[in-house]
């Protein structure tokens, strides 16, 4: 019963989940194998969005609660590492692919 109730009150979320799953599948199909690594890396950076949770925790934390502050701070750092590192690494990989395009067009 609780599940039905939950579904009913969170119908918008259920829609989002289902549509996002389908979108994720659709977007990835037909990727050339050359791009598997950058794509994985790019997707890796996107799930760094989990940092938003860390930010919310940090922003709500009572500064006198040292444990929560410390763990939250650590979580923000780790999340940022995921986001920044992920996007920069992906960009570096893709930069390699772009380099040969000028070379190709010169011919």
């Amino acid at each position: 019963m609780q599940i039905l109730e939950f579904l009913n009150t969170h119908m918008d979320m259920v829609y989002i989940v289902i549509l996002s799953v389908l979108l994720g599948v659709e977007v990835i199909s037909n990727v050339p194998s050359v791009l598997h690594t950058p794509l994985m890396s790019g997707a890796n950076a996107i799930h760094g969005v989990v940092i938003i949770g860390a930010i919310i925790i940090m922003g709500k934390a009572d500064p006198s609660n040292i444990l929560t502050m410390a763990l939250g701070f650590l979580a923000v750092i780790l999340g940022t590492l995921n986001v920044v590192g992920g996007f920069v690494v992906t960009d570096r990989m893709l930069e390699m692919f772009n380099k040969k395009k000028p070379g190709k067009s010169k011919e």
Binding site: I16, V17, S20, L23, G24, V27, I28, M40, I46, V49
Partner: peptide, 12 residues
């Protein structure tokens, strides 16, 4: 968080 996470989850 929801869309980003699910997208990566399914695409991954």
């Amino acid at each position: 968080m929801l869309t980003g996470g699910i997208l990566v989850g399914s695409a991954g």
